[in-house]
Amino acid sequence: MGKPLLEVRNLRVEFPTRHGTLCAVDDLSFHIAPGETLGVVGESGAGKSLTGMAIIGLLDPPGRVAAGEIWLEGERIDNLPREAMRRIRGKRIGTIFQDPLTSLNPLFTIGEQLIETIDTHLQSGRRTARQLAIELLAEVGIPAPELRLDQYPHHFSGGMRQRVVIALALAGKPRLIIADEPTTALDVSIQAQIITLLKKLAAEHGVAVLLITHDMGVIAETADRVAVMYAGRLAEIGPLREVIHTAHHPYTRGLMSSIPKLGEGRDKLAQIDGAMPRLNAIPPGCAFNPRCPERLERCTRERPAPLPVRSNFAACWLYDR
């Protein structure tokens, strides 16, 4: 394994409230190699989006990174001043958010927004920037880019807007793209188009992708490795195939079997009883222990660290040898 592009070490994100401090991301570590796609899955409230926000330094106050380190290409970025962080966003880390409607400014044309971004990050001059913008739009599959460049976001449909957002994310020629639920707001048929596009572009540009989503199907088609989060903690991380076919953590296993699939028997779905704990009521020991069918006595007392199981790491005492 070469030098990682992004490395997150023991990240902890806290939200101080007047009822006590909530720990939304707790002791999370992972890394992404250059050109690799890491999928982060988890149910709502698992802390996956906050992880992405923490990496690009856009946590909404009062949320803050309370502990841990974030390294980008050998440079520590979690303690940078705001101005330096602003230069990293867009230039070295591109972002794609869930709702393409809100990530584009409705008052400017697509072209103005693209050219502005390209010019800021590449200092290319406006004429070259315009040329680059047209090329980018063509690359993300927008027909007649010369004409569409001068249109406003509301002239575009949801799927087309998301393509523009991808073009914007690529504009600064970043090494890493953080995509937070990039297809959730789209219809299934459009979803497939966007996923295919994202994959193709990531491969062509050699960009690493941190893909945050709740949709295991999207991960299955896109990611090289998968990190499963539960209640702000890492449950399991490993290569895609292994996580999907031979998951080790009981939560991952439950999650995988609760997804309805085509061509399956018509009887009951496997289900995990209960619900993910709220952040102010995380049980002691392993956060999953009250719902776990394979709970051991020590699971209720001690919190497991990620332990190696074959090529995965699973935070589960079952694998403590």
Partner: peptide, 20 residues
Amino acid sequence: IDAIPDLQMTGKARTPVAGE
């Protein structure tokens, strides 16, 4: 039906449908 992500065929792309 083609657009449903298939968990079993990991890494295999769906055939995207053109148009909206």
